[in-house]
Simulated scan of single mutants.
Amino acid sequence: MASWQAAALSRVIALQIKRKPTSRADEAHIVRQARQKLGHMPGYVLPPIPDGLHIRPVAFATLDGDAARGEWLTWKTDYPTATVLYVHGGGYVTCSPQTHRPITVTLATLLRGRVFALDYRLAPEHRFPAALDDAVAAYRWLVETQGVSPNRLIIAGDSAGGGLTVSTLVRLRELGVPLPAGAVLYSPWTDLAGTGDTLETNTERDVMFYGAGIRLAGRIYAGDTPPDHPLVSPLYADLRGLPPLLVFASSSEVLLDDARRLATRAGEAGVSVALHIEADLPHVWPLFCRLIPEGRRTLAQTAAFVRRVINQVPPPASLWSESCHDNRIASRAIVASH
């Protein structure tokens, strides 16, 4: 059962954000509305910056010679325990490293490490594969010019950024680039073709989105590319050889099936994957870690996963484990081992 704080937050989100799409909702309207509602995080959600954490903007050159941007969040330490490449969500059309500081600041602090938050190009001004190209370039920049070892590097992302994280792993594998130690996905959007059942069954329960709106948004990023292209929608990609995945989703969100089906396909491909389904939380609830205990717990689980995979501690032997937060609601974890 969700905490009272999460229940209250869900009511606020539903009032402020959720709007049913209309037949007149063209691309420009969808983008404008998304940027108005999601492009700025309220001050009470943003975390204070700890004294030991330094944040600085960075520009780097892509393989094409263009400039890409992001921000480093570095904990003051002699030897960072881990580096996280963070890829924010926002439907590929909005948000930024600044909107996602609740996650990146908290991860850098918990890990006493470094987070590089990528500011990738957004649609519709820059459609597929611009965001993917930027994410691949950022990873290669970290490894090839910043001295980050792949076995101490994690990629993480939420929503669109969660899908983009998986697409980045697939593209890196195709290019023969050494893969990171693992990846973390919060409420990932992995099927821009919009075939998941929960786009319908959870359309009223989800406090942020309607399923029909998700389908409309997918076309904006894909452009002329088929939405089931495996690098647009990594649900349809060959997932063999990917590093361990930690996936989170809410039981009430419309993208639940995007996470569940990805975890199933990854497990079938021999990937070590853990799927945690939390009860009745808003989409990408770690963004609200200052307000709800579930957000803080999920980020603590993320930090534990990062420490495990960079230290190459083997995953649990059990294929199935369940941990109940109370006697009625279970958070289910699926673990498929190599």
Rank of each mutant, 00 (worst) to 15 (best):
S3T: 14
A7M: 13
K20H: 10
S23E: 14
D26G: 14
D26F: 12
E27Y: 01
H29M: 14
H29C: 00
R35A: 05
Q36M: 06
L53E: 01
H54L: 13
G65M: 15
A68I: 14
W72N: 01
W75R: 02
W75K: 05
P80C: 05
T81S: 11
A82Q: 06
L85C: 02
Y86V: 08
H88L: 08
T94K: 03
P102I: 03
P102M: 03
T104D: 01
V105L: 04
A108H: 07
V115H: 02
F116L: 10
D119C: 00
T145F: 02
Q146W: 00
R152I: 04
I154Y: 01
A156P: 04
A160D: 01
G161V: 06
S167V: 08
S167F: 09
R173W: 01
G176V: 03
Y186K: 05
T190Q: 14
G194T: 12
D197M: 11
D197F: 03
T201P: 02
N202L: 14
N202T: 11
E204T: 11
R219G: 12
V232M: 07
F248Y: 15
A249I: 03
S250D: 05
S252K: 04
V271G: 06
V273A: 01
P286N: 11
R290N: 13
L291F: 10
E294W: 13
R297F: 08
A300Y: 07
A300D: 13
N311E: 15
V313E: 14
P315Y: 12
S318N: 14
I334C: 08
